[in-house]
């Protein structure tokens, strides 16, 4: 079944809402972090919203997703509830990983959302393996793997590219090139800064796309997904983007100019779609206000949910290190429904 692109006003407003939902959620997370409600590391997706929203719009329910530690946006766009995501960041049992993982390890098996991987590049072989399982079981699903351009320098990136192409596995690789691996600029970490070119040397279709344009991303992803479903072969998208905030909550951003950040912010994914819609007389300020009010309510409800969540009792500390002993034959949770 081919994915159809919709570009009517209603659809674009819905896409705008999805991006704004991530944007405002992330802004609230930063506040909650400052209030010490959220602890540990916090990696915000602000500036990169178009990628998750565009790509997720082209997927089916049975497709697998492997994401990074900057995955709040992926989780929201995939359909994990904002409540369960925020409760996870609060470390409560009503979180999507029972509070065990926190910000970097969001999981939801029912949505085929396999984390939340916090080792750069570590999710790549995992995604290839999920695709292998799908292929072996003749399931018509593909696996999408999100990673940053920093992962491209890792050996696991190259191992995963090679295996996916060698074995012709249905993986969509989404490189979120936000131009900095923590504080190391692309030019300081890559011999070839055109990542798509690098990936194409493995023998798969690899293209660059404007990561700030949600319509472009969806179009590119849609084409990729169609090709993968048709051929069962991997496909590579390099989304050129920029993160507006620091790498994590502990980043002084000494490695880049404020002017550079400002330049990218001016062409950010949210402002760009709003401007285009307004220029074409398709958006009124009151519509934005109404969307933002809805989002505000959802965020408030998520906060209430998270704050009401239970702490896991310490007596359950070691629960789920291993599967229950009795379950060796009947709860093969690796299986997909």
């Amino acid at each position: 079944m081919k994915h159809k692109l919709h570009l009517d006003r209603t659809y674009l407003l819905a896409q705008l809402k999805k991006m704004l939902r991530i944007r405002h959620f992330e802004e609230k997370c930063a506040e909650l972090y400052a209030q010490e409600k959220i602890r540990g590391f916090l990696h915000l997706y602000i500036g990169e919203e178009a990628i998750a929203v565009g790509v997720m719009s082209t997927l089916c329910a049975k497709d697998n997703i492997v994401a990074t530690y900057r995955e709040h946006g992926h989780a929201l766009a995939r359909g994990l509830s904002m409540k369960s995501i925020l409760a996870e960041m609060y470390g409560r049992t009503n979180g999507c990983s029972r509070g065990r993982g926190g910000s970097m390890h969001l999981f939801d098996k029912s949505q085929h959302f396999y984390g939340g991987n916090a080792i750069v590049g570590g999710g790549l072989p995992l995604a290839v393996g999920l695709a292998m399982a799908n292929k072996k079981q003749e399931q018509q699903a593909l696996t999408v793997c999100f990673f940053g351009e920093g992962a491209v320098a890792e050996g696991e990136f190259h191992e995963a590219m090679n295996l996916a192409v060698l074995w012709q596995l249905p993986v969509l690789f989404i490189c979120e090139n936000n131009r900095y691996a923590m504080g190391t600029a692309l030019a300081l970490s890559e011999s070839e800064t055109n990542i798509a070119k690098k990936a194409s040397s493995y023998g798969m279709t690899a293209v660059q796309v404007d990561g700030m344009n949600v319509v472009d991303i969806e179009a590119a992803s849609s084409k990729a997904v169609d090709q993968i479903r048709e051929t069962n072969k991997p496909y590579f998208l390099e989304c050129q983007s920029y993160r507006f905030r620091g790498h994590s909550s502990f980043d002084g951003q000494l490695y880049r100019d404020k002017a550079e950040v400002k330049l990218w912010q001016e062409q950010g994914p949210v402002i760009r779609l709003i401007t285009w819609l307004k220029d074409n007389n398709r958006l009124e300020d009151k519509e934005i206000s109404s969307i933002e009010a809805e989002i505000k309510d959802e965020i408030q409800a998520a906060i209430t949910f998270a704050e009401q969540g239970e702490w896991e009792p310490i007596s359950d500390l070691t629960k789920d290190v291993y599967s229950p002993a009795v379950s060796s034959t009947n709860t093969s949770q690796g299986e997909q429904s």
């Binding site: 399982a133 072996k136 079981q137 090679n162």
Partner: peptide, 25 residues
Amino acid sequence: HKIIDTPLCESGFVGVGVGAALGGM
């Protein structure tokens, strides 16, 4: 299909094994 030779990439193919196990194999 059952006996699979891999390239020399220990992290890669062990990771693929983890993913395949997650996927029901």
